[in-house]
């Protein structure tokens, strides 16, 4: 499993997007920060970005693609490489609360499926509550007859931690805390 790098570039999103197909290798592709709910730059900057302004772009790039990407932006005025960090691990907590069997089943399957390589799930707590008296329609005392709850923390290295974060993002009734990443800064000279 190769290392993954967090890269913060300054540039227009479309310009960065155009660069990426040229650096993708071995079926792996760089990941946008937004795919795991992470952003570089402030909210006003994000709004400016939607209008096509040159703003901060957050990417997660497999080690094999860092060199080609750095070389691709070297000497181009529209890009500025601000920071590169090698990601050594990450974690996020989640909680889930669903009120019928179908979405609860989807969450359970996701939690109990084999985890991506290098990822562990710690502190998993699950519960199912049944309240037969809460069956049917209520106006003033709404309560669900069935409630499934789960919570826990995923830990691991990329790309597995990204993968499980992405899997849970696609499920309704699951709320993830911000993905926290550990890493060390890498000097720019040695990257190209």
């Amino acid at each position: 499993m190769s290392a993954w790098y967090e890269m913060i570039l300054k540039g227009r999103e479309d310009d960065v997007r155009d660069l990426l197909p040229g650096v993708a290798t071995d079926g792996e592709r760089p990941l946008w920060g937004t795919e795991v709910d992470l952003h570089a730059g402030s909210f006003p900057e994000h709004l400016l970005g939607l209008l096509g302004a040159r703003t901060h772009q957050l990417l997660f790039v497999p080690g094999t693609q860092v060199g080609p990407l750095v070389r691709a932006i070297q000497g181009k005025d529209e890009f500025e490489l601000e920071r590169v960090r090698e990601i050594t691990g990450g974690r996020f907590t989640f909680r889930a609360e669903a009120f019928s069997a179908e979405p609860a089943g989807k969450i359970k399957r996701a939690l109990h499926a084999p985890l991506p390589e290098g990822v562990v799930l710690e502190g998993l707590e699950e519960s199912e509550d049944f309240d037969p008296a809460a069956q049917g329609v209520e106006l003033y005392s709404p309560a669900h007859a069935y409630t499934y709850r789960a919570q826990g923390t995923f830990l691991g290295a990329p790309p597995g931690i990204f993968e499980i974060h992405h899997t849970l993002s696609a499920l309704d009734f699951v709320h993830q805390e911000k993905l926290e990443l550990d890493g060390r800064l890498v000097e720019g000279e040695g990257l190209g």
Binding site: F99, S100, P103, V137, E138, L139, P142, D172
Partner: peptide, 17 residues
């Protein structure tokens, strides 16, 4: 209003978050 909660509960039980 009372039906607000009723609609919320029915939707949640139908899988709408």
């Amino acid at each position: 209003n009372a039906p607000n909660f009723m609609v919320k509960a029915i939707a949640e039980e139908a899988g709408v978050e």
